[in-house]
Simulated assay, not measured.
Amino acid sequence: MTPLVIAQVTDCHLQNDPDRDYQGFDVERHLDRVIDDLLLQTPAADMVICSGDLVHHGGPEGYQRLSQRLAHLPVPSYWIPGNHDDAQLMLQAGHQHGSQLNQRTVVAKGWAIILLDSTSDPDGQGGGSLSRSQLTFLEQQLQQYSTHHCLVVLHHNPLPVDSDWQDRIMLANADQFWAALAPHQNVRAVINGHVHQPWELVRGDVRVIMTPATSVQFKAGCQQLILEDDPVLSLPAYRWLTLHGDGQIETSVKRVAG
């Protein structure tokens, strides 16, 4: 069986006004560069997963622009909200452009990809949690697809990243999340956005893979938010994941120059 290839796009932070920047960067153009790069890849990914903070406290226009861009790709796309998103507006935009965007479990090539909403109980600072219904959904899906390899997708990081300000706004009920995963030996990895940095960590037998943003990158290991100033690490980025039939995952970050 050929592997399943996923492109993960995250933390676009699109503004209501496409000409308005975010943290001093033209995030609209950054997203264009990433989408253009995806279009150039041969072979193409099998799907694109957008893992939250797609719009920065904006109205429906940002989701419309993003969904139109994703429609140009030759493969299906799926999205989940982050703490800066409006989940209801996302659902509405997704239905307008085909309910596939809002799909929460994707099954392909021996893998079950479970997409979660971690924006419950926001703390006003950027943190979020998985609601009881999301945890129940996760447990049900893991049981239903017990013969598949499983990849779990959420926005908030379920492990700390040794950055004081970011660790305060990670997944608030990470213990409950890990308890839900514990009985299921078929969970191969968790992927998330939120941190605007690349990380590859491990908890038990589960890999935790975090992806830099299309918008701006944050410097790692800081007490407070500092933008990445390294000329390479600060480029817009996305992640490739190659999911093999034996449960192994190959992954790399693709940074996109102007």
Rank of each mutant, 00 (worst) to 15 (best):
M1A: 11
P3D: 12
I6K: 07
V9S: 01
H13A: 00
N16Q: 14
D19Q: 15
Y22M: 00
Q23Y: 08
Q23D: 07
D26N: 14
H30C: 01
R33V: 08
V34S: 11
V34E: 12
I35D: 12
D36S: 15
D37R: 12
L38S: 13
A45W: 09
D46Q: 09
D53Q: 02
D53L: 03
L54C: 05
R69N: 06
L70F: 07
A71S: 10
V75L: 08
V75W: 03
Y78A: 11
D86Q: 04
L89W: 00
M90E: 06
Q92T: 14
Q92G: 08
Q96P: 05
H97K: 14
H97Y: 15
S99F: 12
V107H: 15
V107T: 15
V107R: 15
T119D: 03
G124M: 05
Q125P: 00
G126T: 02
G128W: 14
G128T: 09
S129D: 09
S129C: 11
S133G: 02
S133V: 07
Y145T: 06
S146R: 14
T147M: 05
H149C: 08
H155L: 00
L159Y: 05
D167Y: 13
D167C: 05
R168N: 14
R168L: 15
R168P: 08
M170V: 07
N173L: 05
N173K: 02
D175R: 12
F177Y: 13
A180P: 01
A182K: 01
A182L: 05
N186F: 02
A189T: 05
V190F: 07
G193K: 00
G193E: 04
G193H: 01
G193S: 04
Q197T: 03
Q197A: 11
R203L: 04
I209Q: 09
T211E: 04
K219P: 00
Q224R: 09
I226N: 07
E228F: 02
E228L: 03
D229V: 01
A237I: 10
L241W: 09
L241T: 10
L243G: 10
L243E: 03
H244M: 11
Q248L: 11
Q248Y: 13
S252H: 11
